[in-house]
């Protein structure tokens, strides 16, 4: 038995456990998806509960992925992998990943994106950010979502809006998206926004860095999340 302080460092130990947990979750997620798919077509009475389960699992998975990525960035093991992406394809794929849940809640998604808009970003990281936002929408949106992308002064702005009740006042007020807003009472950890801000900041071009912005109102009157990538 290795005494504390010897051998493998504790954060590393945690990271490898998180990694293992994530693998298990991945398996659960895959079976959950199969089961939900099979159940809903049979009109099974448990499908509502199953879909709730699927949502929670996804949330858990997103959190773990974000934790791991943050850990790796901290350890300088993560290199941002910037590629040229067709933004409309990217949005379509992200929606596809969340389709089952959004369908289940009957949320209608509208995409507004020029066909020929291509932009440089780390597909994996940004997809993590948007996945997280869409997963939240499952809980907070009423029945409508609007995802829009456009170029604005040398930035690509990706905006996700819903017709829910919007972000709480406390979140809107904090300009720094750090982890200080963690609240066990409300269940909001702020991890998602922290991760999004971190990822945005890793995107740099010609001396400019990416950033995020949240507000309420917008086209649908609910929460409005934007990520700006240079």
């Amino acid at each position: 038995m290795t005494a504390p302080g010897e051998g493998i460092a504790f954060p590393e130990f945690l990271a490898s456990i998180v990694h293992d947990m994530k693998n298990s979750l991945g398996m659960i997620l895959t079976s959950a998806e199969e089961t939900v798919g099979a159940c809903s077509s049979l009109g099974c009475p448990s499908s509502k509960r199953l879909s709730q389960m699927q949502y929670e699992t996804k949330r858990l998975n997103n959190n773990l992925v974000q934790l791991l990525t943050i850990y790796k960035m901290d350890q300088a093991q993560y290199t941002v992998h910037i590629t040229d992406n067709a933004v409309s394809d990217f949005i379509a794929e992200t929606i596809l990943q969340n389709r089952p849940l959004l369908d289940y809640r009957g949320i209608d998604v509208v995409t507004v994106c020029p066909d020929d808009l291509c932009w440089f970003f780390d597909n994996n990281l940004i997809s993590g950010v948007i996945n997280n936002i869409l997963n939240n929408a499952y809980r907070y949106a009423q029945d409508r979502l609007r995802i829009a992308a456009e170029e604005q002064n040398g930035f690509m702005v990706l905006t996700v809006q819903d017709n829910g009740s919007g972000y709480p006042e406390s979140m809107l007020r904090s300009t720094e998206h750090d982890l200080k807003g963690t609240s066990f009472r409300t269940g909001s950890t702020g991890l998602g926004l922290y991760f999004a801000a971190l990822v945005a900041g890793l995107h740099k071009n010609k001396g400019r860095s990416g950033y995020i912005d949240i507000s309420n109102g917008g086209e649908l009157g609910g929460g409005c999340f934007s990520i700006y990538l240079p």
Binding site: N23, L25, G26, M27, L29, T30, E33, N61, E93, L96, Q97, R99, P100, N124
Partner: peptide, 9 residues
Amino acid sequence: LVKPFSKEM
């Protein structure tokens, strides 16, 4: 493909 992925993906 980054794990886990859905069948749609």
